[in-house]
Design a protein around this nucleic acid. Sequence first.
DNA 1: TTGAAAGCGCTAACAG
DNA 2: CTGTTAGCGCTTTCAA
Lengths: 357, 357
Amino acid sequence: MAKKKKATVKDVAAMANTSITTVSRVLSGSDYPVKEELRTAILEAARALDYKPNIFGQMLRGATSRQIGVVLPSIVNPFYSQLFTAVQNACRRRGYVPILYSSYNDRDTEQYHIDMLISSQVAGVLLSLICWEDGIRKKLEDMDIPYVLFDQPHEEYSGLAVDFDFYAGGRMAADYLLQAGHQDILFATGPLDRPSRRQMLHGFKDSVENAGYVFGDDQVLIYKEGIETGVSAMKDYESGRILGEMILGRAYLPDAVFAVNDMVAIGIIKKFEEGGVRVPADVSVLGFDNVEFGEMMVPALSTISQSAYKTGKLAADLLFESMDGHEVRHKRILLEPILIERESVRKKHNKIRRSSS
Amino acid sequence: MAKKKKATVKDVAAMANTSITTVSRVLSGSDYPVKEELRTAILEAARALDYKPNIFGQMLRGATSRQIGVVLPSIVNPFYSQLFTAVQNACRRRGYVPILYSSYNDRDTEQYHIDMLISSQVAGVLLSLICWEDGIRKKLEDMDIPYVLFDQPHEEYSGLAVDFDFYAGGRMAADYLLQAGHQDILFATGPLDRPSRRQMLHGFKDSVENAGYVFGDDQVLIYKEGIETGVSAMKDYESGRILGEMILGRAYLPDAVFAVNDMVAIGIIKKFEEGGVRVPADVSVLGFDNVEFGEMMVPALSTISQSAYKTGKLAADLLFESMDGHEVRHKRILLEPILIERESVRKKHNKIRRSSS
DNA sequence: TTGAAAGCGCTAACAG
DNA sequence: CTGTTAGCGCTTTCAA
């Protein structure tokens, strides 16, 4: 009872009066021919001894691990927990298990986690990184670990990736707000440390300017402080509240604000409500991500959808495809934004386009 | 570049003109004396070859894994993602990494995951299970894997655990609602498959009856259907909506509803709002869990707090304590409920207690 | 059909 | 101080 040493092939062999070789052949599911009688005896002995193969013995022999490393900013943001759930399901379907690391958007932590993953010999790696650099690529490739990047686009990267078209997302946000009749619109965001955010801002600005308006620096609100509080589960939401406060403190309220993600949008809305500003009656708020909670809110959050579940599934599928050694069909998958109209954006007027039909 | 075989101790030894033993001594951080000169040469060779110890070799040799298995119902419920984050932080502090498995509240999946954890030789295990049975205990103990149960209390269990006093939670909910002047109160829940829910119901009922009211079967609303849709991220929320619909369909609206968890409460509130019923003006809703989103809602959700973060941290700490071989001080930790008053419960009247002061 | 033996990469006795 | 050797548990030649 105390320290019942785990049974090994040797023990099973002894009990079944045969050699470890034969035991291995039977127990490892090889199709090597073994006389039925012996096979039964071995199976029985294995059961009796409650034999479980020691995975490390197999690994050492050259088998390949069934673990997939996943690096995400933080799982408390529902976008990432949904994404991870998708990855998890895809892994399970193939008999793998994902190992999750939260980087809290910190470069050093990212590096550290990647080293951990490498040293634990994962079979493959899924990465959402703020910072992609050649050192990481080299490490991964030296160790021959397949990887795919997702969620965060990186310009100097040319490998496997599932990207989202953040530029198009930014444009879509601006276009929608403009078409709904809003003119004085704000872009509210946390730090622009990630490529995704910079691309969104870029697209947003382009659209506003294309429509003939000026888009000045005072129209982008950035909240930079407090980034280090990695433990806090509500970072984005809190940033949203502060951004909301900043907006409330202005001389004039804007017509609409576009938040860099749904959690920020929710924080802004909450702050507005507290300050007696109604959404969308007084000001419209548009989010980004299509986090499930957006739908649960009152008012339900209008947003631009980047399907977390789809992203996770596609990334995992792509990884497995490349692990199988098949030539992958698509090196990069680009997901397009989808507008989700709910209740948090008010239509001041619709520009009706006269159709010829 | 192609298949650059990973460097082993042997390669390093060759390059540094020494034996593998010495290499191992230097590289595995043993305090065995090695001449400074040789030590430097070895370190240099290791760097040059980008040597990374093969973890499986070490494991096979008897080292102990740095992985902690964690089984949770589902990470998309923010309660569990917060909890997991706490576990993750506690692990990291000690150089461990948690491996997450979602059971989707399914017994077979729970079993399957536990088998997976065992076969991957984790150093310890943290479990939130619907169903604790002796077979599991036996497996874990045979393999000599330390474990602690948390979140779900199990009566026939006597090992390490971090439990929450669900009975007290149920009582607190009823007491609070009663004291706020509500009489016709409902208990809304998903399937009563978990001990936690049964205990809460028990406590709730006791309090109502103690207060001199009858608590009939028509006052507990159970939504049982659709349990299998494990993939859906919004199961609890959806259940809440359906429960909300059931309530709306009644002849009379109740004064207040106590929901078995916050996500269910949010679903109920949303449904009420859609049906033109205002919370808390028309009916009060009290949640349970104190999920972060409760605070973000409008109206902010009143709830009973079971700190996810604390639970996770305590469970992990307890596990590490027992892994260290120390005699653990507390075998079972019982967390008490805390009332979080926000905006979703209306006080019809307060029973003022005349104080003698 | 079966088994003996080699070796995966690592560490720890045990000699030098 | 350094090196030789054995062996962790497993699979896989290679012989019988």
